[in-house]
């Protein structure tokens, strides 16, 4: 197995190191031959499993992911950056030169694409594990599935179901909170509502989300577009379901769609 990093915070690959009770058993079952964050022992491919964290934001990385794909049997993307472009995909809505000038005194030294995109926009991806960050137990399940040669069974239902399981009183109903739980994929453990705040969608769209219906419900008195658009447009901003809904209700966008 190899672990590869693109534009990201390292938090998802850290989840592998956060498997404190399982780490040594995982290492017994798998040869980890490319994991720069954790090991100086590096071997070239081919890899049975490539775990890919991060999004594509530079030309160099656009070519690098092609190489990783070429040498990997199963390519699994982990986290919101790799599966949707991450928070850095906000620049897809901005002016690249303006971003450069805002952060760097000498923009001519910076090489960057105008977009941050998911790995699947560039190469074939065998499985996408979502979350910002990913859930480490789901990661273990994906690795075990691939070892057993079966498809991973990561649930795609919404956060709402997990709130019910957890016994959390619905904060959207009981407290008029704006919560993305109904359209967001479970996997976090439904933590935000349990901590008295609305879900902010860090696991991305659930299976068959009805984003427009939920947005219209909130816009009918509970929230303004100025409040709702940033909520849809954060860590999974470029996931199609969230992007299309956010763009539809964005009063500052003349036409739907992004660059």
């Amino acid at each position: 197995m190899g672990v590869f990093k693109f534009a990201s915070c390292d938090g998802c690959q850290l989840q592998l190191l956060s498997c404190e009770d399982e780490l040594l058993s995982i290492a017994d079952a798998i040869d980890i031959v490319h994991f720069l964050e954790a090991s100086s022992h590096v071997e070239p491919g081919p890899y049975d499993i490539a775990l890919v964290e991060g999004s594509i934001t530079t030309n160099v990385d656009r070519n690098r992911i092609l190489e990783v794909r070429k040498h990997s049997k199963y390519l699994v993307t982990i986290g919101a950056c790799a599966t949707a472009g991450g928070i850095q995909a906000l620049k897809n809505w901005g002016d690249r030169s303006d971003y450069l000038r805002a952060v760097y005194a000498r923009p001519e030294y910076i090489e960057t694409l105008s977009t941050s995109t998911a790995i699947a926009d560039h190469v074939k991806v065998d499985f996408e594990l979502r979350g910002c960050p990913i859930n480490r137990l789901q990661l273990i399940d994906v690795i075990l599935s691939l070892l057993a040669d079966r498809a991973p069974r990561t649930p795609r239902h919404s956060v709402c179901l997990d709130c019910k399981r957890r016994g959390t009183v619905c904060i959207a109903v009981a407290q008029d909170a704006v919560c993305l739980g109904p359209i967001t994929q479970a996997g976090c453990g439904a933590i935000c509502p349990a901590y008295q705040r609305g879900c902010y969608g860090c696991f991305g769209p659930a299976a068959q989300p009805n984003c427009d219906s939920l947005a219209d419900w909130y816009l009918a008195g509970r929230a303004t577009p100025v409040e709702l658009v940033p909520l849809l447009r954060n860590f999974n901003a470029n996931a199609p379901a969230f992007r299309e809904c956010g763009d539809r209700i964005d009063p500052f966008l003349d036409s739907g769609g992004t660059t």
Partner: peptide, 13 residues
Amino acid sequence: PPRFFEALLRGRP
């Protein structure tokens, strides 16, 4: 790769 946090925060709640 640069991720432009200081730029993307502008205008956010």
